[in-house]
Design a binder for these strands. Structure first.
Lengths: 194, 194
DNA sequence: TTTTTTAAAATGAACGCTCGTTTTTATTTC
DNA sequence: GAAATAAAAACGAGCGTTCATTTTAAAAAA
């Protein structure tokens, strides 16, 4: 475990599966597809993963971890509340542009298919982290006093919507360019003073 | 065609499939599942549908039509712009409460799985209709001047987000109760005057 | 009114195929 | 020489679909 070979083979599986699970759906990607597409043998797949479900689990853990780290770092570095909000939006957009498959995997794939007992994606670590950020801003009086659910929907709803439009090829230009105007709209609906 | 028997059997298929496709995903619902779950034989299914894909097509057509009619009627009846916006939000919430499976089918099921050449769901008839409504309000100066994509995301994003939270059992009370406060937030981010 | 005919509707066993997984044997890599 | 990978075959289960057959219900004929 932890050898160079492991990381190479696992990476091949990761990169092929994240793309194909997002495109075709978990159930429509077979082990034979993975073997052929990732350029490795079926034996090698089962050498590292005990089942197809475990591949899904692995992908889920990796992707949520990557996103969480990026969001957390962005908020940490932000000098004020509005910049923190901007960093959430920008980082999600940035990730959608740089690693679209990863974002598609998180937002499109029904992970209950391979993780029957996992919480819904909106309760995964990155989204919970953002929710806590919002909660704090309401309690400290930065945002208008409102239900956390509403605040969360007003922020994440439009962001996710834009990302999905991009993933569906409705938007053909870099969505990072929308950060500013989307932030403006969100700020208007949330902040006490403007 | 069009007989009483047809409508009964097709209805059984419709009701079982809309629920199961939404819950488990199209690929994970087999013809045998449908046969057993809907209480009809495999032969009866193939008597009315030439393939499994056609069941998906049928469900897609029916559901988008139902939603479109509801949204269109709501906007038509609204006395002013804000009420029209409220009707969009309320009707989508109302439908999520009254016919959750229908809404889940529209928002969760990857319909590319059975409709390979169909446009993404955000370009389906009901969503296109709402988009045109928004476009008109921007052009007539009711909404602030902004990219239609942004306006669309600021409206539909939070609405869909709330619906998804409800479908994921994160929200346990009637989401129609959120109509007013969500409308308030959206209005703040969109309307010129308030 | 009873019998016959018709066609729609429903049945479920069977077909060919793919699935996830395991096993086997052999080779490559560190 | 131990760990990693390859290639191929085999497993039973389940897949979408087909089809010869039966049931049902109503129309036509007697």
């Amino acid at each position: 475990m932890g050898s160079v070979k492991e990381s190479i083979t696992k990476k091949k599986i990761f990169e092929f599966c994240i793309r194909e699970f997002a495109r075709a759906g978990y159930a429509n990607v077979s082990i034979r597809n993975i073997s052929k597409g990732a350029g490795i043998s079926i034996g090698a797949i089962y050498y590292y993963f005990s089942s197809k479900e475990q591949i899904g689990q692995f992908l889920y853990d990796k992707t949520t971890e990557i996103i969480l780290n990026k969001i957390r770092l962005g908020i940490k570095k932000a000098p004020n509340d509005k910049e923190a909000l901007r960093s959430i939006i920008y980082n999600l957009f940035d990730m959608s542009e740089k690693e679209p498959h990863l974002m598609e995997f998180i937002l499109y794939v029904k992970h209950k298919e391979f993780l029957p007992d996992a919480p819904p994606i909106c309760s995964s670590k990155p989204f919970e982290f953002i929710k806590n950020f919002i909660k704090e801003k309401i309690e400290s009086g930065v945002f208008r006093d409102m239900d956390i659910v509403i605040a969360s929907a007003l922020i994440m709803g439009p962001v996710i919507r834009i990302i999905q439009l991009r993933m569906d090829n409705i938007l053909n230009n870099d969505i990072r360019l929308y950060t500013e105007s989307l932030l403006n709209g969100i700020v208007k609906s949330l902040f006490k003073e403007q």
